[in-house]
């Protein structure tokens, strides 16, 4: 069918609203941030913002807090991505096998995903309260007698990662389970039958049939979760606010502080571009080296 005149315009008219939203809320802020990042940016309209070239970017690499936040971000990403993928896969395999109550378990595991980050962050903060009245401390000390005294979950720089990371894993498992589950349902049953005839046991089938068949999905989930890990902010901001002594600061919370705490918007924007470059590089490398002939 050939379209004529106005008819040919119609598809673009339908595309227009989405495109406008995309331009207004994504492209414009991105370009504006790029511009801000090369200025000593003044907040108030009408004030002189001085052009400083790449000075903000140079400051990023000489800022000791940037390097410690980068380390923290990497550590958070490694731990939470591994946790989410491993537990998500286990949950998906179990739910996939479940004869009865599959929908129930699927919903149950997916539930944390749809909860609000703000609410569950505050909830975890209370659970891990440093005093005796915190539920985790109460369980560990008074009920299970595993510890002689309470742990200062939020006041100890190392212990503070426990609530942050466990929240990150708990909240994300459902999402990776859902994606894995969809992939598992696509694996042809004949392959398992053939494997059985060849004498393969359960582990063998998992290793030689299931995992290779869902490989593209594994890579997809890995890439998405790593991006998500680098963008961790709400939980950290609300649970520890980067404390104690900025030891739990991550890239995004550091960036936020530069802008809204110290009014260094130019430096904050430069940080955001460095962060974007890091994420883009890592994602590119992941896809390049892990893809091996399969489409992601």
């Amino acid at each position: 069918m050939r379209l004529h005149g106005f008819q040919r315009l119609i598809p673009y008219l339908f595309l227009l609203p989405g495109l406008l939203l995309f331009l207004t809320w994504m492209v414009y802020p991105l370009l504006r941030a790029l511009q801000i990042s090369v200025y000593d940016w003044k907040l108030l309209p009408g004030q002189v913002s001085q052009f400083v070239g790449l000075a903000n970017y140079r400051e990023v690499f000489t800022d000791p807090i940037f390097w410690s936040t980068l380390r923290n971000t990497l550590m958070y990403t490694v731990v939470t991505v591994t946790g989410q993928m491993a537990l998500g896969l286990v949950a998906a395999l179990l739910v996939h096998q479940a004869v009865r109550g599959r929908i129930f378990f699927r919903t149950l595991y997916y539930f944390p995903v749809i909860t609000s980050w703000v609410i569950v962050s505050l909830l975890f903060k209370y659970l891990f309260d440093s005093s005796r009245s915190g539920l985790i401390n109460y369980l560990l000390v008074a009920v299970l007698h595993l510890l002689p005294r309470e742990i200062g979950w939020l006041s100890d720089a190392r212990a503070a990662w426990a609530p942050i990371m466990s929240l990150g894993v708990w909240k994300g498992v459902g999402w990776s389970m859902m994606i894995f589950l969809a992939a598992l349902q696509m694996v042809p049953l004949e392959l398992y039958e053939v494997a059985s005839i060849d004498g393969a046991g359960g582990w063998r089938k998992l290793w030689n049939v299931t995992l290779p068949m869902i490989r593209p999905t594994l890579i997809f989930v890995l890439v998405m979760l790593v991006i998500g890990g680098f963008q961790a902010f709400i939980s950290i901001y609300l649970i520890t606010a980067g404390g104690p002594m900025q030891r739990t600061e991550v890239l995004l919370s550091h960036m936020y502080n530069q802008g809204f705490k110290y009014l260094k918007f130019g430096y904050g924007a430069a940080l955001s571009y460095v962060l974007a470059a890091i994420i883009a590089t890592i994602s590119f490398l992941q896809i390049k080296f892990l893809r091996r002939g399969v489409e992601v």
């Binding site: 440093s130 005093s131 200062g152 979950w153 006041s155 404390g243 104690p244």
Partner: peptide
Amino acid sequence: PSILGGGV
């Protein structure tokens, strides 16, 4: 220890 961010 509340001065370190813990305790009551």
